[in-house]
């Protein structure tokens, strides 16, 4: 039987936790990506990682490590979300509601883009028949847990797994 593919989706916090290219945690991440498979990042995450104002100095090292990992080919951006797909938009709504609930905010305070991880996860499952599992690597527990619930709500039960990035990195 053919092994079903695992797709790994990474959030901003994973790269922040791994630091600059000289950091041992970044090297370990690269080794793991080479062994177990690379990561895809939502467009929104890419914007967060590379679109920082220059005056915030500590971000420069992280931006450089993301640029380098993309050049090396083990991190790819996942764009072109089809928001007209009801499963994608439905998953985003569930995630937004979940984030609002656990962070004690109104749903209006949670932007559509905050649910970008769930949109990417569900679209990957919609597009890839061979995909057995999507793993979400994030430090954002509300979003991570929300995505799992959202995927279930649109019919992808046990197809999305939340990996707390600190447990993975440490």
């Amino acid at each position: 039987m053919k092994t079903r593919e695992i797709v790994r989706v990474a959030d901003t916090g994973l790269f922040v936790a791994c630091g600059s290219t000289e950091n041992e945690k970044f090297r370990a991440l690269r080794r793991d990506a080479n062994r177990e498979g690379g990561f895809v990042i939502p467009e929104r995450v890419h914007e967060e990682l590379v679109g920082t104002p220059e005056e915030y100095d500590p971000a420069q090292g992280i931006t450089a490590s993301v640029d380098q990992s993309m050049e090396e080919g083990w991190v790819e951006m996942y764009g072109g979300i089809d928001y007209t797909n009801p499963k994608v938009s439905g998953a985003m709504d569930v995630t937004r509601r979940y984030i609002a609930d656990v962070t004690d905010r109104s749903e209006h305070d949670i932007e559509k883009a905050d649910a970008a991880l769930s949109a990417v996860a569900v679209q990957i499952l919609e597009e890839g028949e061979d995909v057995g599992l999507v793993e979400l690597y994030t430090t954002d527990k509300p979003a991570g847990e929300g995505c799992v619930k959202a995927a279930e709500a649109v019919g992808y039960e046990a197809k999305v797994e939340f990996v707390y990035a600190f447990d993975y990195v440490d």
Binding site: T12, T52, Y56, A59, I99, T103, A113, D114, D140, P142
Partner: peptide, 14 residues
Amino acid sequence: NHRLMARELDVSPI
């Protein structure tokens, strides 16, 4: 999460 904090305090997400 960092996204809410960034928006509420007007700092960048990273």
